[in-house]
Design a protein around this nucleic acid. Structure first.
Length: 585
RNA sequence: GGAGUGGUAGUUAAGUCGGUUAUAACGCUAGCCUGUCACGCUAGAGGCCGCGGGUUCGAGUCCCGUCCGCUCCGCCA
């Protein structure tokens, strides 16, 4: 493997069978211990760690050279493999060591800004500034290797299913719909701009018109929106599109992709994936990307409490709101007042005014003790609570109750340690086509404007009943993360035009913004559909982390900066002049 | 755009009611040590307490502003 290199072995591969072998190793000094007469150096590369020793068997010059090795120096050691006097069971190479015949320092470093060995201790901004040091840590190297292997598995699977990987442009046309675009000024065309793609959506549909049949691409996408722990402004998608596809076919292909990747990466059998409707997801979990590893499902008690005299509940119901509950088993005794207060603050961030709780017993205690016995019995009947349980109730608008209790359900499960390890996948289907934007009062596409409505709902467009339409869309959810989403697309240009009109675009608008797609659809478009996986989130789950930065080599901070390179940064005025751009600040 | 939280030697943290010379561990430097593996021992260097104002006889500590990290809300077709 290293025929043309001086390095004969990696630091992770030597074993007792190699004793007596002459080797040349190159790597980083993980740890250097000078005992006076004998010097030990733990050498590390990405394959492992091995102990090098310089003692009385070595010339004085070698011992001196070894004593001059400091943390994270890059060294070359030539020597002979020997059995160790005392083994180190913590190292895979722990039965052997290399007795140095020469020690050469290849590269030096000043004192490190943080320690690479052991547990993470430094603040994240420092670790991002020195990302190359952070990336020496085995945990991150393991994640990058997992990511690499997953992308290979994806390509192998899709290739075996007849998919062709096609690259689509990075410099594309700005689309005013959806997320903010990253814009790139054109030098040649003064005042005109490219946009970086939010997704290759339109290009892949046009590839279907082109007869490409089964397309995929592992591709960078860009959205100029604020970040989260699971969201970066540039991210990688596994983008898939299939001609002549039904929803069932796309879902089957995607399921098999996930099944293959989880089997090959983790030897984990994902089993059969349940399918629930969007409506059912909201009803049972309050959110459209539910974590289904645990229970605590919601129960609607609006009807049961319709006539309650408890004003805090009655008020929202009279205003047209709803009331839902979920149950913390045994929580009557184990959950503290302090936790309940924190949860109340938590649901307020989702515009849910408050959280009402009751400890089930005879009588109940807590705010829900104010309900009548009949009402308490009705809650017990609806939720299955028993004596000793904690009932959490939210009353307010439909959106606030679902969001507040839905996010609280996940937070409570995590806080109380009720989330079992493993993976729980679920397909969520039948999303609404449109939702009303409160600011503008206009219909917005829930998925995107190219998503086909369910065929039986197409006639509702333009009747004012757009809110009743459902889309032929589907999301794949794992452990509460949306890891994939897609739809059957519109292949009829007339239907596509009607959707643009429903979204408030004039025909001229639609032609100007999406004319090239409409033109393509007019030239013999096959029925088609597809989906895209969030590859970073998939890698997160495979690596067992909940932070997307741990599966990206060079991630950005929450304010979208690269602390290592310093991007974004001011540019030379000459560059701006060439691009016909002027700074206003 | 908003909320929460953090910012004190190179690093991680402690710092009480506003009061002497701002502590500790790791790292670093020097010396000692022949089997360590979180080596050990001795000594030493190292600080604009994020930054800018203010209150006070006196501010790491209280107040106002601001910058940066993280988490969340909005946003993310």
């Amino acid at each position: 493997m290293f025929d043309n290199a001086r390095r004969t072995h990696t630091c992770g591969e030597l074993r007792p069978l190699d004793v007596g072998r002459r080797v040349v190793l190159q790597g980083w000094a993980q740890n250097a211990r000078d005992m006076g007469g004998v010097v030990f150096i733990n050498m590390r590369d990405r394959h492992g760690i091995i102990q090098v020793v310089a003692d009385e068997r070595c010339p004085d010059a070698v011992r001196q050279a070894a004593a001059g090795v400091h943390l994270e120096y890059v060294v070359e050691v030539e020597g002979t493999v020997a059995l160790r006097a005392s083994a180190n069971p913590k190292l895979a190479t722990g039965l052997v060591e290399v007795v140095a015949a020469s020690v050469t320092i290849l590269s030096r470093t000043p004192a490190l800004p943080f320690s690479i060995e052991g547990h993470i201790s430094a603040n994240e901004d420092l670790r991002l500034q020195y990302r190359y040091l952070e990336l020496r840590r085995p945990e991150l190297q393991k994640n990058l290797i997992m990511r690499h292997r997953a992308s290979l598995a994806v390509r192998r699977y899709l290739d075996s299913e007849g998919f062709v990987e096609v690259e689509t442009p990075i410099l594309t046309k700005a689309t005013p719909e959806g997320a903010r675009d990253y814009l790139v000024p054109s030098r040649v065309h003064a005042g005109q701009w490219y946009a970086l793609p939010q997704s290759p959506q339109i290009f892949k549909q046009i590839l279907m018109v082109a007869g490409m049949d089964r397309y995929f691409q592992i591709v960078k996408c860009f959205r100029d929106e604020d970040l989260r722990a699971d969201r970066q402004p540039e991210f990688t998608q596994i983008d898939i599109e299939v001609s002549f596809a039904t929803r069932a076919l796309v879902m089957e292909l995607a399921t098999n992709l996930v099944r293959t990747v989880w089997k090959e990466m983790l030897d984990h059998d994902v089993g059969e994936l349940p399918v629930i409707s969007y409506t059912e997801a909201i009803s049972r979990f309050g959110v459209d990307s539910p974590d289904t590893r645990f229970g605590m499902e919601h129960s609607d008690v609006t009807a049961q409490l319709r006539a309650t005299e408890f004003g805090v509940v009655r008020g929202p119901l009279d205003a047209g709101g709803i009331a839902k509950v979920f149950v913390v088993k045994g929580g009557g005794a184990s959950v503290s007042r302090k936790q309940l207060d924190a949860w109340t603050l938590f649901v307020r961030t989702y515009k849910l005014g408050g959280l009402l709780y009751g400890k089930v017993g005879s009588p109940w205690t807590g705010p829900l003790a104010k309900l009548s016995e009949a009402e308490q019995s009705a809650i017990i009947a609806a939720s299955g609570a028993i004596d000793g349980d904690l009932v959490l109730l939210g009353a307010g608008t439909y959106a606030a109750v679902n969001a507040g209790l839905g996010k609280l359900r996940a937070a409570v499960a995590k806080e109380l340690g009720l989330v079992p390890p493993g993976f729980s996948f679920v397909w969520v289907v039948d999303f609404p086509s449109f939702e009303l934007d409160e600011e503008s009062g206009r219909w917005m596409a829930v998925h995107h404007p190219f998503t086909s409505p369910r065929p039986e709902h197409i006639a509702l467009m333009g009747t004012g009943r757009e809110g009743e339409m459902f889309a032929d869309a589907y999301d794949l959810v794992c452990n509460g993360y949306e890891i994939g989403g897609g739809s059957i697309r519109i292949h009829d240009p007339d239907v596509q035009s009607k959707v643009f009109a429903a979204l408030g675009m004039t025909p001229e608008d639609a032609e100007q913004k999406f004319g090239f797609l409409l033109d393509a659809l007019r030239h013999g478009a096959p029925p088609h559909g597809g989906l895209a996986f969030g590859f970073d989130r998939m890698a997160m789950l495979l690596c067992g982390t909940d932070n997307i930065r741990e599966v990206i080599a060079f991630p950005k901070t929450a304010s979208a900066q690269d602390l290592m390179s310093g991007a974004p940064s001011p540019v030379d005025p000459k560059q701006l002049r060439e691009l016909h751009v002027r700074n206003t600040e």
